[in-house]
Amino acid sequence: MDKPQNNRAWFMVLPVLLLVAFSAIIPLMTVVNYAFNDTFGNNAFFWVGVEWFKETLESDRMWGALQRQLIFSFTILAIEVPLGIAVALAMPKKGVWASVCLVLFALPLLIPWNVVGTIWQVFARIDIGLLGYSLGLIGIDFNLGQNASAAWVSVIMMDVWHWTSLVVLLAYAGLQSIPDAYYQAAKIDQASRWAVFRYVELPKLKGVLLIAVLLRFMDSFMIYTEPFVVTGGGPGSATTFLSIDLVKMALGQFDLGPAAAFSIMYFLVILLVSWAFYTIMVNLDREEERNE
């Protein structure tokens, strides 16, 4: 059979290929190159194999950053998801106030990240900041620069302030899609408020919550700008998360080799955890269906 084949069609793909190459593949490969070589400038590279990976994996510094990162991510998830659902439930369902609420909740999402950092930096200052100064008045020393727990509280509060809105908006959209008849039937069945949430609302929210958790996890795992502006990773390395540590290593100390190895592992960890999250959630879903 004669099938017309025109290889010129491949030229159509070329622009996209070029774009992806320059925006993703080439930079990534450069990082890979740095991760397996040592360099003393002048574009002279010496093959070192997995040396940098070994060094990074053996350093307490990286494990400390990873641990803080995990604590941070899980803390903000544990706060933002329930809080977001609660706020979405409390929001008016329709009318002018629903729109007002939506706009108000969307606002934090529109503020540039370093501005968010600056807002909270100023807010927490003990000399002029509303929070730091007020706490000082009632005898609590809220000094970001010296007090590690103050730094943690600030960073977590900031993230909750900045990102709970995302969960609120997603959960609100999910709640809006539940037909009225479900609430009416629950009323007829004399279901308690908790039962309505547990058996009507939560099952319908599962899909959007999965997305919310995934997005918030990936995003918080890569967080850099806001804690960098508020605490700069300090005091000491108390709030030095993975990306802050990485930048310190790559640009502060100019240890390009270890930093490159670090970034590759960082990337793989995010990929792995997100994949694991997704697979677990989807499998739970299937499991349930199989039991039916």
């Binding site: 037909p179 008849a181 479900y182 009416q184 039937a185 007829i188 058996y199 009507v200 099952p203 349930e288």
Partner: peptide, 14 residues
Amino acid sequence: IAQVFQFPVVYDTM
């Protein structure tokens, strides 16, 4: 009062 609606309303997870 008991009421049955036009479209099925069941508690999916139960």
